[in-house]
Computed example of a mutant assay.
Amino acid sequence: MTAIEYVRGDATAPQGKGIKIVAHVCNDLGGWGKGFVLAISRRWPEPEAAYRRWHRERARNDFGLGAAQFVRVSPYLWVANLVGQRGIRTGRSAGVPVRYEAIDAALGRLADEAVELGASVHMPRIGCGLAGGSWEKVEPLVLRRLVERGIPVTVYDFGG
């Protein structure tokens, strides 16, 4: 694969055969309650529980901007919690919470895991919802970190 495949659909119902990783961006506050994470929690309880535990025990682990956590939800499906957002958006003057350098670092960790598992990666336009990012800035990171390493990537735009 030399490009990202864009499809209309639900990233929590990834298409195709083989091992798949559903990737999304989380904040560094331990908050889980708005945006794409709600779709994840409706489908699987494990990613939210693992993320909250990871944050709660952060003094003893790698939780922080740029970190990635991989949670197995079925024999051939994993969810990647990528910490790429500083806090949450509380007002216009605070600026956007997205941190492109953190997304880049987390994508590097995701690439290593995908190669090890022989997995494809499935995601919404990460960092571009509540995090306030721009796909024009995130897409090159996905291309460089994942696609250039030969990892099949599908980006889902929700809706019919």
Rank of each mutant, 00 (worst) to 15 (best):
residue 89 R to I: 01
residue 6 Y to G: 00
residue 134 S to E: 15
residue 25 V to P: 00
residue 93 S to R: 13
residue 57 E to R: 12
residue 159 G to Q: 09
residue 42 R to T: 09
residue 32 W to T: 00
residue 94 A to M: 05
residue 54 W to N: 10
residue 46 E to F: 02
residue 16 G to A: 09
residue 129 G to Y: 09
residue 19 I to F: 03
residue 74 S to E: 13
residue 77 L to W: 03
residue 69 Q to M: 13
residue 73 V to D: 11
residue 97 P to W: 02
residue 91 G to P: 02
residue 93 S to A: 15
residue 122 H to W: 05
residue 122 H to P: 10
residue 53 R to I: 00
residue 94 A to L: 10
residue 64 G to M: 08
residue 59 A to H: 11
residue 61 N to R: 04
residue 76 Y to L: 14
residue 70 F to E: 10
residue 94 A to G: 15
residue 137 K to N: 14
residue 133 G to N: 06
residue 127 G to P: 08
residue 47 P to A: 14
residue 74 S to T: 12
residue 10 D to W: 08
residue 103 I to L: 13
residue 7 V to A: 09
residue 37 V to H: 01
residue 146 L to F: 04
residue 14 P to I: 11
residue 139 E to D: 04
residue 112 D to Y: 01
residue 110 L to E: 03
residue 56 R to Q: 14
residue 119 A to V: 12
residue 69 Q to F: 04
residue 108 G to L: 06
residue 91 G to M: 01
residue 86 R to F: 01
residue 90 T to I: 15
residue 53 R to V: 03
residue 151 I to F: 09
residue 18 G to Q: 08
residue 80 A to L: 07
residue 55 H to G: 01
residue 28 D to L: 08
residue 85 Q to M: 14
residue 100 Y to E: 09
residue 3 A to H: 13
residue 88 I to C: 11
residue 145 R to K: 15
residue 113 E to I: 03
residue 11 A to D: 03
residue 24 H to W: 00
residue 148 E to F: 03
residue 75 P to R: 11
residue 64 G to L: 12
residue 125 R to M: 14
residue 153 V to N: 07
